[in-house]
Simulated assay, not measured.
Amino acid sequence: MQKTEGMINRMKHHHRLDITVNEDCKIEVPPDILEQLLKPHKLSFYYFVFLDQGSETYKIDLQDITISGSQLIFGVPNQVFCNPAGNHHHPNYKIGFDESTLALLPNPFPFLLDPLNTNTITFDADAKVRVKSIFSNLFQLLHMKGRQPKTEIILAHLNTLLTEFNSAYFEQSDQAAAANPKLNKYIAFKLAVETHLTDQHDVHTIAQKLGMTTSTLYGIVKEFSGVSPKEWMTNRLMLEAQRKLQYSGFSVKELAYELGFNDPDYFSRLFKKSTGKSISAFLAEHHD
C-alpha cells in the first residue's frame, strides 16, 4: 500500500498553500508520485476529480465508483483511493489540498463527512458551468507566469468551489443540511465518532453529548444510514481495520489494540462477521 504523507507538499502549486490544481493533466506529475497515484494509496489530503466528459472508474475503500460527465468524485484523508489505470483520460479538473489549507477557509463543509454515504457529486447544467469556471480560474491563477497571487485570493476561489460542491452534494438527494435538523444531527454523530474513533464509544454517552435521547439518535442514524448507531460505529471501525491492513504491517493483536479492542480474538470474530472474511483471507485477497 502506497503512503502519501508529504506528497501534496511536493505537488503543490502555491508557495504558501499546500494545494495542487490540474486541468486535463497539463501539468506533469513527478514520475515517482504518478506511480503511487496509479496504485491504491492512503490519502493524506483531500482530493477531487471533476469529469467534464466521458466516463471513468475509480476505487475508494475497495469499492469501484464510476463517474461520467458533470460528476465529481472525492476522497478524504485516510481513505484508500485508486485512480484509473491507462494513459487516456477524459477532460477533467483535479484539485488536492491538505487539512491546514482547509482550516484557513471561513466556512465548514459538511459534505466532507459524506453523511449521505456517497463519494460522488452530480452537478446540474448551471452549476457545471460555474464549477468549470472556478476550476479554470484557479488553474490559471496558480500557473500564471511571474508573481503568484496572494494567498487570500486563492483561498477565496477555493472557498467558492467547495461551497458549490457542498450545495450540489445535498441538492442531489433533496437533502439540504441547513434546512434539515435531523441531517445536522446525523452529521454531528459522525463527527463525534470520527473525532475519537478508537474510544469504543457508548451510544448513550454520544446521545447525551448531542442533546438527544438514545431512541432519538437511533431513529436519526437508522434513517440516514440504514443501521443502528452501534452497527454504524462497528462498521466504521471495521472499515478502518481494512484500511490499516492494506497499508500497515500490524499483527492482528497490534491492530486490535490500535483500534481500541482489548480482546484480539473478539476483534477477529467481529471483523469476519462484518466483512464476511477472516483477516487472513482478506490479506490474501488484497495483498499489494
Score class of each variant (00 low, 15 high):
Asp64Gln: 14
Val131His: 10
Ile65Lys: 05
Arg147Gly: 09
Pro115Cys: 07
Gln148Trp: 00
Asn119Ser: 14
Ile65Met: 02
Ser173Met: 12
Leu102Ser: 00
Leu141Cys: 07
Glu171Ile: 06
Asp126His: 12
Glu164Gly: 01
His143Ile: 04
Ala168His: 04
Asn87Tyr: 09
Leu162Asn: 03
Lys59Cys: 10
Glu171Met: 12
Asp126Tyr: 11
Ala168Gly: 08
Thr66Gly: 07
Pro84Ser: 08
Phe139Thr: 05
Tyr93Ile: 07
Gln53Ile: 09
Lys145Asn: 13
Ile121Asn: 03
Ile65Asn: 02
Ile95Phe: 06
Pro181Gln: 10
Gln63Val: 12
Pro149Lys: 04
Thr66Ile: 06
Lys94Gln: 15
Pro115Lys: 05
Asp98Glu: 08
Ala156Asp: 12
Ser68Pro: 00
Ile134Pro: 00
Pro181Asp: 10
Asp98Ile: 02
Gln71Arg: 09
Lys128Gln: 14
Asp61Ser: 04
Phe109Met: 06
Gln172His: 10
His90Trp: 13
Pro110Ile: 08
Asp114Lys: 15
Val76Arg: 05
Lys145Cys: 04
Asp114Ser: 14
Lys94Thr: 15
His143Gln: 08
Leu142Asp: 04
Val80Leu: 08
Tyr169Asn: 08
Ile67Arg: 00
Pro77Glu: 03
Pro115Thr: 06
Glu171Trp: 07
Gly54Asn: 05
Phe123Asp: 01
Met144Val: 11
Leu116Pro: 05
Gln53Ser: 14
Ala178Leu: 08
Asp114Thr: 15
Leu72Asn: 07
Glu164Asp: 12
Ile153Val: 14
Ile154Gly: 03
Glu152Asn: 11
Thr101Phe: 01
Val129Leu: 12
Leu161Asn: 07
Thr57Val: 10
Thr57Trp: 05
Ser136Val: 00
Gly54Tyr: 01
Pro108Gly: 03
Val131Phe: 06
Ala177Trp: 08
Gly146Ala: 09
Ser100Arg: 14
Ser55Leu: 02
Thr122Trp: 05
Ser133Leu: 05
Thr122His: 11
Ala125Pro: 00
Thr151Met: 09
Lys150Arg: 14
Ile60Ala: 04
Gln172Pro: 06
Thr66Glu: 09
Tyr93Gly: 08
His88Lys: 13
Leu112Ile: 11
Asn117Asp: 15
Asp124Glu: 11
Leu161Ala: 06
Lys145Ala: 12
Gly75Tyr: 02
Ile134Lys: 02
Asp124Arg: 10
Ala103Gln: 12
Ser100Thr: 15
